[in-house]
Design a protein around this nucleic acid. Sequence first.
DNA 1: CGGGCGTTTGAAGGATGTCAATGATAGTGG
DNA 2: CCACTATCATTGACATCCTTCAAACGCCCG
Lengths: 256, 256
Amino acid sequence: MKARKHLRSVGPRGCEFHDCSICKGLPQEIRGELERYSHLKIYSAGDIIQSEEEDADTVGVVIDGVLKLEKTLYDGRQQIVGLMLPTDLFGRVFAHTSNVSITAATDATVCGFSRSTFEALMKRSPELEHQVLLAVLDELDVAQDWMTVLGCQTVMERVAAFLLYLRRRSVFDGESSAERPGMESINIPISRKDMAAYLGTTIESISRSTQSLLRTGVLGMKGPQEFAILDLAALLKASGRDAHEFTNHQKTIGRA
Amino acid sequence: MKARKHLRSVGPRGCEFHDCSICKGLPQEIRGELERYSHLKIYSAGDIIQSEEEDADTVGVVIDGVLKLEKTLYDGRQQIVGLMLPTDLFGRVFAHTSNVSITAATDATVCGFSRSTFEALMKRSPELEHQVLLAVLDELDVAQDWMTVLGCQTVMERVAAFLLYLRRRSVFDGESSAERPGMESINIPISRKDMAAYLGTTIESISRSTQSLLRTGVLGMKGPQEFAILDLAALLKASGRDAHEFTNHQKTIGRA
DNA sequence: CGGGCGTTTGAAGGATGTCAATGATAGTGG
DNA sequence: CCACTATCATTGACATCCTTCAAACGCCCG
């Protein structure tokens, strides 16, 4: 796996994420404490950060790369119940078991805390707990949105919705791929297998959908992991959603 | 719709839920404030408590009955993304729009607050905000679990999982239907249509699944809304889940 | 008794999963 | 530098589950 385009340089003094995400707006004192207790960790694609059923003892913020939250049925079927992109908070506070595994879907850099330390900090700082609440609320919104995708949309619609979700996240997270209209591109940071597990379908069905979007001129292909959006309106229509659903929402945590 | 079995008598002085759910363990002072600002509301099945896209200005706790959280696609397809049972906290704090509609799935009694009042209370009481965080974390767990059901389980499995979910909730919420083994019964508090919307399928498919479970002696039928569990082990197996998944979990909010 | 609603049952068609084969790409070791 | 292999993406043929459409059934209530 090649080096990630947007990998930020990481200084020796620890991680510098404390200017973003949950730390925005916290009193300087707490930010300092967070910094003191944080551990910068670098994972390779496939690394297991936390396995299902195992004690959930890690909390963290994604700095770079993608983590997948996955549930596995006893017979091996797997469903990805969440993707953690840069700035997302992961880990299950206030519970010993989370029932989801956390795995690096790509090479990833995270700023981690031990859960007990983080919880102690939250206890001391209601402001921090507030930020965590906002983050969890955002995650819940995304989960409910995805339940709708899984529950009542076709595979084609799911693929389109997924691409638009990636687009929205990359735009707002500042990976601005805002080139001239018609040549906007979407980078798919995860494998087809993970995509299938997230979309509740198979790699074959995904392939058929994407190829259909290519044939109809909605998308262009720059590589298996990168598509060009040739016809955004058509992609929106293919997603079966209202257009503004993919443009309005912003994470509450970013503006609260 | 006939009167609900477990409808609690509601005194004229307001709602008495303040001994349960999010209020457990709060300082007396805050509980008093909650009581002061709460409004007891009684809804009939079908009443809309909050429509999609509308400003989310209500927060509350379900006292009795069932609320459904629903998302609607522009072409009319609907997905229920959550069922709120007694003790559940509903409403979207810290956001003006929630993008889900909240409807009474049955006749229901709730203890409601205006969102702004509730948020002000949370600001004054970190303990309250902590309880809300625990409630939202629970909701997220349920949502992620349901994503797995929708994403990679058959209709039969979904039906079985749903019945087991209802069973778990009614046991732990104290509606003890713990009669002698083999005659335990499950009350389905919502219509087949809502069940289909929650399970991401159709009423016809649900009917076929339930009828199949009846024919194979796993379930008995006491009425369209009430089944008897004749073979719990078989039902667990039909759900495609591990047995302990439906017996272990308890809401964190209950014990935190 | 009759109409309306919710549920069940049946038949047919479609979307998607499964299985298998081919093609593309990258990394490895000779 | 190049074959070799492993992995991933694509494509095709087929099977299956599920939805859709339609009709019958039961039940409550007027």
